[in-house]
Amino acid sequence: MSAATVASARQRAGAVIDHVVRRFGPRVVLDHLSLTIAEEELVVLLGPSGCGKTTLLRLLTGLDRPDGGTVEVPVRRAIVFQGDRLLPWQRALPNVALGLSGPDARQRASAALAEVGLAGRERAWPKELSGGEAQRVALARALVSEPELVLLDEPFAALDAITRLRMHNLVRALRRQHHAAMLLVTHDVDEAITLADRIVVMSQGRIAASHPVPLSAAEREAGAAREDLRAALLADLGLANQL
C-alpha cells in the first residue's frame, strides 16, 4: 500500500487510533491500543468498569493527550459525556447553541432540539428537565454542529428501560440523518447488539476482540445469530459461565 492510499484511507476514516499509550502515574491504562473507525460506522465499545473507556474517549476529543502513539480524528467531532453536563444557568436552547455562532445559530439549535423530540422545550431550565430529557438536550448539543465523529460515553446508562429503548430508536433515526461515525461506550451487551455495526471489547488496556454485527433489525432482537454473538461477548468480558 502506498503512502498516498494510506493517507486517503485515513482521510475517509472516522478515527484512527494507533498504538496509543496512556498512563496515570505508574498505571498503564491504555497499552498500545489500536482501533480504526470507518466513515459512518457505529462502533460500540464494551468493557468492565475502570478499564479505560472514558480515558480513550477523552483522547479522541482532544481533552487529554496520549503518552505514546497517535490519535487522528476529524476536526468536526462532538462528545456526549457520561452525565448530561448541561449549563444549569442556561435554558435548553442556549445550551444546545453553546458552540454555534452566526445568525442562524438559534434556528439550528431549535431544529436540533426538535430532532431529539424536544420541540417547544427551548426555554426550559436544565433543573426542569427529566434525566432522559436532559440527556437528549446533550445529544442535540453534540449533533447540532454536524460532526463527522460522535463520541458517546454511556449516554443512556442512567435512564430507565423504556426511555432507553426510545433513545435507541432516536440514535438509529439520527444515524440516517447525520452521516457521522460514532463510538458508543456502554456496559450493556444488549444495547451493544441493538445498535452496533461492530462491537469491540476492551481488556488489559487494549482492544481484545472485535465482532462485526451484520444482522438485520429483526435478527438483533431474537434468533440464533444474536444468541451466539451475545455468548461470545459475554465470554470476552469474562462473564461466560455466569449466564
Binding site: L63, F81, R85, L87, W89, Q90, L98, G99, R141, S145
Partner: peptide, 27 residues
Amino acid sequence: QRLVEMARTTGAGRWRLVTRVMFPGAL
C-alpha cells in the same frame, strides 16, 4: 471543571467560555 471541559469540546471560543461558563458559574 466538567462544564469547562464540555464547553471546550463544543468548539466554543475563549470569550464564550468566559462569559457563558466561568462568569455565570462564579456568580
